[in-house]
Write a protein that binds this DNA or RNA. Structure first.
Length: 714
DNA sequence: AGCGCTCAGCTTTTT
DNA sequence: GCTGAGCGCT
């Protein structure tokens, strides 16, 4: 039964629930996004809530964008309403609020967001400075600091219950780290949440302002919120108008502090809340659903939920046991060709194993390398070298390959390249992580704020200006001293102080020129456009010539820079400084999945984490082996195993029509061949829903004795 | 100061 | 199998 909006009974109940706390427990494929969108439209239209009073928190920027456009469609009678909604990820929304409120903490409004790489560099410097021994690597601190921030502990409040000497070391490092960020006017990802909460907690005036502004709050993927995000919600939602949607069975971000208890305890946090379950699945076939259901049942603590579907039985779930990761990838490629070609026999004649030519590896290497360089998939190069596929029958958009770790993508990529199947990888090496892009952004950050030491270190000698480590340190200390004095230092005073520094003449004059150019560009008239300013910056700094050294690679890199300028052009309506702040923010908060190109007809490769919320007709789930899924690192801590199971559940439920589960008997890990065991996930799959291909039969005969195992002991 | 080489350590997962 | 730190040479 569906109503005029195409909602079923439960969905409709959720959408039209009275204002007040509502928890929607929505299984995979149950129309969660649709419900959320309809709810937003409903409260505007029927409950007369003004769109500017609505805050909707999504898990990715892409989801926010999509939701906004869907709301706009539903609200065609209220033109412009959708634009007034506040929508985005927790991080993006907090960043926006901090742009106006952060001065109360002493930071400047034009703060920059430091990514994990920047963060590590700061921590490395601190560790070096403190001469800590190898027992205390920077990576340890970055994990612990993040953990502390996720539970809203500032250095002063720090209490993670660690043993000595770890606790006191962490105390020192965390506090120095926070000082370093502050003096550079930088925030890390976790600060965005923590500092915003701190402001709300300490300023009743600001708190009241936002409580009033956001009179209705909606949250997607509620199962993946962390304590800081929870506190943010709790503080703002005095009015109790919180509408959260989630599925405890799909909570997969425990490692970054998300707390499944947030969803499990919603009822006690918001008494009198309504709970609505969406259990009808519109996505998958019965076979696929049955397989997924049997996997999630391994977790005894999951809230019981029974998914059902009116969809057909569909094809059985295929299991394929490959000899190694290459054979696994070859199976994927063959199947894709088979299923995407009008001619059913296509793909059969494809033989990859035919002794590879002597130099075929080096060609492959080149292709892979150039893909990483350009970040644009391998299409360009591949088609020059290999014959094209016959006209597709099914769109390649409907195929996806899922894996637990990024490292697994390589084998798949290699074979897809050889088979001339276009693909795109989500995540991994991102466009904005490319060296030339980060360099350009570092220059830009310096222009906005010369105290940004992370950026200074990055580019002061790029291109080489004869400023080595020693000279950098002298300059750094000089800048730190200036900042310690507290007040803003004008460029004139900076240069004056700089003149007194003692260092090698060559470095001295080079650095002097460097800062003069910096200040000069910083002085560009307000109304200038950002891409132009950046172009000028590249030229004056000699960065364009440096990149375009005549090599092919240099040109590719320069093209990447030009692409960055195109992105920068998006903000041309703004004065260049504000545009720069906006650009830096967008780049920092972009999520992996945001970078997926919907328009390209290609197979999608991604991690299970990136796949959450997506669906495909055909899903290849690779590497179902102990040690990979569940990941070996998860086997030590009890709670983590349950998360691996949920991860598997997320993977299985992405498929609409066909699901292929693959595993290899052996695979290379860290360059070493390792024999692998089938994942425990496979052992609980109901045989009647499976189709065992090739060697998989023998595998299941072996397993047969264990097939009765239902609950795991952990 | 800067280049290039070697070796170690490493990877879950991401805003 | 890749990255980045460290070293030695120019």
């Amino acid at each position: 039964m569906r109503n005029s909006l195409g909602l079923n009974e439960q969905q409709n109940k959720a959408v039209t629930a009275p204002l007040g706390p509502v928890l929607v427990l929505a299984g995979p494929g149950s129309g969660k996004t649709k419900t959320l969108t309809a709810r937003v439209a409903y409260i505007i239209e029927k409950k007369m809530v003004r769109p500017e009073n609505i805050l909707a928190l999504t898990f990715t920027n892409k989801a926010a964008k999509e939701m906004r456009s869907r709301v706009a469609k539903l609200l065609s009678r209220f033109p412009g309403a959708a634009e007034k909604l506040t929508m985005g990820t927790f991080h993006a929304v907090c960043a926006r609020l901090l742009r106006s409120e952060i001065p109360v903490l002493g930071y400047g409004r034009d703060f920059v967001i430091f990514d994990t790489e920047d963060q590590k560099k700061i921590l490395r410097d601190i560790c070096d400075e403190l001469k800590l021994d190898k027992k205390f690597p920077p990576s340890l601190f970055s994990a612990l600091i993040s953990r502390a921030k996720n539970i809203l502990q500032t250095p002063a409040e720090l209490n993670l219950g660690l043993e000595e000497p770890f606790a006191s070391r962490l105390q020192t490092v965390y506090s120095k780290y926070q000082d370093a960020l502050f003096s550079q006017n930088g925030l890390d990802f976790d600060d965005l949440l923590m500092l915003m909460v701190k402001i709300l907690e300490s300023s009743p005036k600001i708190l009241a302002k936002y409580q009033k502004k956001f009179s209705c709050i909606l949250v997607d993927e509620y199962q993946d919120t962390n304590p800081a995000q929870y506190q943010f919600l709790k503080l703002l939602s005095v009015h109790q108008n919180v509408f959260v949607v989630g599925d405890d069975a799909q909570s997969i971000y425990g490692f970054r502090g998300s707390d499944i208890r947030n969803i499990l305890n919603f009822e006690s946090d918001f008494p009198d809340c309504q709970i609505i379950k969406l259990e009808q699945n519109y996505r998958s076939s019965q076979n696929i659903l049955a397989a997924a259901q049997s996997v999630i049942e391994l977790n005894s603590e999951q809230k019981p939920k029974t998914l059902w579907t009116e969809n057909g039985v569909g094809e059985k779930v295929s299991i394929y046991l490959a000899e190694n990761e290459r054979a696994e990838a070859e199976f994927v490629a063959k199947k894709i060709i088979q299923l995407s070609s009008p001619d059913a026999s296509a793909g059969e004649e494809l033989e990859y194993e035919e002794e590879p030519e002597q130099n075929s590896n080096s060609i492959l290497d080149r292709i892979l390398k150039s893909r990483r360089m350009s970040g644009r998939g391998s299409d360009t190069f591949r088609f020059a070298l290999l014959p094209q596929l016959p006209k597709k029958h099914d769109s390649l958009k409907e195929f996806c390959v899922l894996y637990r770790t990024h490292a697994q993508s390589r084998a798949i990529e290699e074979v897809l390249i050889q088979a001339a199947i276009p693909y795109q990888i989500v995540g991994g090496l991102k466009f904005y992580e490319r060296k030339e892009i980060k360099d350009m952004l570092a220059y830009l950050r310096l222009i906005l704020n010369y105290r940004d030491l992370v950026s200074l270190k990055r580019v002061i000698n790029e291109p080489a200006r004869g400023i080595g480590d020693r000279s950098y340190q002298i300059i750094r200390d000089f800048i730190v001293d200036l900042s310690a004095a507290g007040k803003e230092v004008s460029p004139q005073d900076f240069i004056k102080g700089f003149e007194n520094l003692e260092m090698l003449p060559k470095a001295f004059s080079a650095a002097g020129d460097f800062f003069k150019i910096l200040f000069e560009i910083s002085d560009t008239e307000k109304s200038a456009v950002l891409p132009e300013v950046m172009k000028l910056m590249a030229r004056k700094m000699g960065y364009d010539k440096f990149l375009r050294d005549g090599s092919e690679m240099g040109e590719t890199r320069w093209e990447n820079v030009l692409e960055l300028l195109t992105v920068a052009g998006k903000f041309r309506a703004l004065p260049w400084r504000e545009a720069a702040v906006a650009l830096l923010e967008e780049v920092a908060l972009l999520s992996e999945i945001d970078q997926k190109d919907e328009n390209r007809d290609s197979v999608t490769l991604m991690t299970l984490h990136s796949a959450k919320g997506l669906e495909f007709d055909n899903v290849f789930f690779v590497g179902l082996e102990e040690g990979i899924l569940p990941h070996s690192r998860s086997l030590v801590e009890p709670g983590e195993l349950a998360e691996e199971i949920r991860l598997a559940y997320v993977g299985l439920t992405r498929a609409r029509k066909r699901l292929f589960l693959l595993l290899a008997q052996s695979r290379r890990i860290f360059g070493q061949v390792q024999v692998s065991q089938p994942s425990r996930v496979l052992k609980v799959l109901p045989l009647e829903n499976l189709q065992l291909l090739g060697e998989a039969k023998s595998l299941f005969e072996e397993l047969e004795g264990e097939l009765t195992v239902k609950k795991m002991d952990y």
